[in-house]
Amino acid sequence: MSRVIEIAKNPLLIALALIAALLFLGNTLSPGFASGGQILRLLIVAALLGIVAAGQNLVILGGREGIDLSVGGVVSLSAIVAGNVMNGMDGGIPLAILACVATGALFGLFNGLGVTLLRIPPLVMTLGMLGVLQGLLVVIRQGIPSGRAAPALSEFVTRPFLLGLPGIIWLWIGVGLLMAFILHRTVFGQRIYAIGSNEQAAFMAGVPVRRMRVALFMLSGVFAAIAGLCLLGYSGSSFANVGEQYMLPSIIAVVFGGTPLSGGKGGYTGTMAGAVLLVVLQSILTTINIDESGRQMVFGATLLVLMLFYGRGRGLRA
């Protein structure tokens, strides 16, 4: 019996069960909701969120109140940078990828240095960085046109590529495999869990805690930047603050995936399911015929109910 409860408490299984239930509900409410083409569309949107959430997941796993509120700003900035570098031409894609990765890594580096060298709490540091990024976006929009996606990039994101799945889904699967490999098969991954569960002990054991943390924030920036690049391919051209919608949802996807905000335990597979769960939920709400206001209320309330399924804090005991 306890074994059954143990399995039922697995966040990945909870998320998968909820996704199945929501798909069933969606299909009952509006037939065709769970059709192949529709699910594929949902997966593309989920992939964008999931890639941002990969970086968020790493930062959160690293503990010490790790969180990255600047991801939304990096997504927006990266979309603009990519749009301008490639400017609608396939030949510019490699350079655009480089520019995006560099942008993301740079802002991640700033975040990481602020958190480690200056010991600013991550929430504060990345919040301040978000303000800087938003200001930077205004400056850039003033002087530079928003830029266009190269046809090949748009095709990569929206058209079937292999086995009927678009390239971005394969990219996301690749990110998932990479994350699983990093977290469970490398020293780096073991060290993430080590600093996340007990920083002091990890430090004593010789883990370069500061360098680790800087690396985590840089990875978060890079993942956000890659998502920004893909988002450009998805929407064709970048527009103001496209990335803002990813900031808190990326954190919720991580939480729904079973990684508590206190860090040190959890993984990325759950987060992927969490991202799909969020996107399916949002999509169901758009198919139901209610006002935007009602939709928001239902969304907020459902998020709260879903959170009840996941790691609630422990009760206090004397």
Binding site: I251, S293, Q296, V298, F299, G300, A301, L303, L304
Partner: peptide, 9 residues
């Protein structure tokens, strides 16, 4: 954050 979505609605 979830309650903020609800209140906004």
């Amino acid at each position: 954050f979830a309650t903020s979505i609800f209140f906004t609605g």
